[in-house]
Write a protein that binds this DNA or RNA. Structure first.
Length: 465
RNA sequence: CGGGGCAUAGCGCAGUCUGGUAGCGCGUCUGGUUUGGGACCAGAAGGUCGCAGGUUCGAAUCCUGCUGCCCCGACCA
């Protein structure tokens, strides 16, 4: 806010798994972190409350939010993980526009079908345009413009872009906004069998993505809604404050998530994984079968609340047929491609992660998405011993590539503790005169509140790994 | 879209019934004392009371219209 200390490295995704190793440290005195002490009255659910209080977001209109620096960092980290797992599964990133022409949607028949949820606008020439609620039509248009042969398949294209759905009633902050960020992927295959494999790739990628975000997700049989199709799963995470009622077999909670050695091109291997993850009962209230659920052993029945964080569909030729996205098969005859689409809402995920991980004092970020890994709290700003000790920690951790936020404001210790707990960085290093007198700092873990006294050198060692 | 509610300083609120030109707490700024769980003292800044009309000598307050936002329900990543 008061000028950049240095230019942080621009971080393109797809730079490989270590692309986040570059340090991006910050001193609070130079940062823009508008913490609120009181909860704005409009915020009802905990994630909304905490995001406003922690200075992560600001509402600009009903269901429309600006991401402030702290919130933006989390959003970027979520997107980064989403992208890495999409890339790993063989999807290819591109970027489509937010504004679309109504023409495309008339081709698929959805311009009329979509209803008032679609934000319709006119340009200066009175042409019908719309702010995209999804991109099946557009990706199909792109596909049909270039792809003619089965030899170019399978293909999975994805992008991460803002979407707009004019919800009847936006609520719960980012959880049900009208504008939201979405990763949507679209797969193209020559036949249903290929499409099934593509579907399974995304299924496994989703399991991995949510696990890396620190979430336990459970795939559940789902309604297909306006996207259409007949094969669909919602990925649900359990959280007390979740919007929907869900029912599942307890064993899902202990299932092992596929490792990063999964061979995505091995159809049989993926089919086995997906088979396992769909073998037990799991359904949202819309698809709930009370009898089937009751048949489970009592100690295996989990009835809980959940948040939908991802949704995958196979819908065959629903768009390719009317829009004439056809490819020639080995026999030379043309046929419409089989498609699927696969969505994840990163902006909703930010809220969902908070719903799943917080306490009375504030957020508890999983390390993978924390806006910073470490907070250094100088408990006596201006102290002859605390200032240099903090400075050294800050420099050393930065040099080792640790995202660190140095709380260097002239505030009382209590206020710093409250701020640190609120913004929920995984680690706090408490540097005060009391500890330094014995050559120690205190390392506190936010997730369980545990603390440990150690030398600054040990603290650096501990936090840099 | 139906039902309820709110709109006064950055945030949380009082004042509206009973009209007389705006107040409290937190935050912000200045100076000082403080410093291991949201410190204290002194001083200061900050508001066309959501907007537009109307009634009145006079409107945050009464009347009319509009807008925005929140909550409950049906829809959704």
């Amino acid at each position: 806010m008061k000028g950049l200390v240095f230019c942080p490295p621009i971080r393109f995704h797809s730079a490989g798994p270590n692309s986040f190793d570059s340090a991006y440290p910050m001193r609070l005195s130079r940062y823009f972190l508008p913490i609120l002490r009181d909860t704005p009255k409009e915020a009802e659910i905990v994630s909304h409350r905490l995001m406003l209080r922690a200075g992560m977001i600001r509402q600009e209109a009903s269901g429309i939010y600006a991401f402030l620096p702290l919130g933006f960092r989390v959003l970027q980290k979520v997107c980064q993980i989403v992208r890495e797992e999409q890339d790993r599964a063989g999807a290819i990133e591109l970027l489509m526009p937010t504004i679309q022409s109504a023409e495309l949607w008339r081709e698929s028949g959805r311009y009329e079908a979509y209803g008032k949820e679609m934000l319709r606008i006119k340009d200066r020439h009175e042409r019908d345009m719309l702010y995209g609620p999804t991109n099946e039509e557009m990706i199909t248009e792109i596909f049909r413009a270039y792809v003619r042969s089965y030899k170019d398949l399978p293909l999975n294209l994805y992008h991460v872009q803002w979407k707009f759905r004019d919800e009847i009633r936006p609520r719960f902050g980012l959880m049900r906004g009208r504008e939201f960020l979405m990763k949507d992927a679209y797969s193209f295959d020559i036949d249903q069998e290929g499409a099934r494999h593509s579907y399974n790739k995304m299924f496994v990628a989703y399991l991995r993505t949510f696990a890396r975000l620190g979430l336990k997700s459970i795939p559940m049989v789902a309604e297909t809604g306006p996207i259409g199709g007949n094969l669909s799963h919602e990925f649900i995470i359990l959280a007390d404050t979740g919007e929907s009622e869900v029912f599942c077999h307890r064993d899902y909670l202990g299932f092992e998530v596929p490792g990063d050695n999964v061979k995505f091109d091995d159809a049989a291997e993926l089919e086995a994984i997906v088979g396992k993850w769909t073998s037990l009962y799991a359904a949202t209230s819309e698809k709930h079968d009370a009898k089937a659920f009751a048949a489970l052993a009592a100690d295996k029945q989990v009835s809980a609340r959940g948040i939908e964080v991802g949704h995958i569909f196979y819908f065959g030729t629903k768009y390719s047929a009317p829009m004439k996205a056809v490819v020639a098969g080995p026999d030379g005859t043309e046929r419409p491609v089989h498609m699927g689409s696969y969505g994840i809402g990163p902006s909703r995920l930010v809220a969902a992660i908070i719903e799943a991980s917080h306490d009375e004092a504030g957020i508890k970020w999983p390390e993978a998405v924390a806006p910073f890994k470490v907070a250094i709290l100088n408990l006596k700003q201006g102290g002859a011993d605390t200032d240099p000790a903090c400075e050294q920690l800050y420099q050393a951790l930065s040099a080792k590539g640790v995202d660190v936020l140095y709380h260097d404001l002239d505030e009382r210790p209590g206020a710093k503790f409250a701020t640190a707990d609120l913004i929920g960085l995984p680690w706090q290093v408490l540097v005060g005169p009391r500890g330094l007198a014995e050559g120690k700092v205190e390392v506190k873990r936010r997730s369980d509140g545990s603390r440990e006294l150690m030398s600054p050198a040990d603290a650096i060692e501990r936090l840099a790994t």
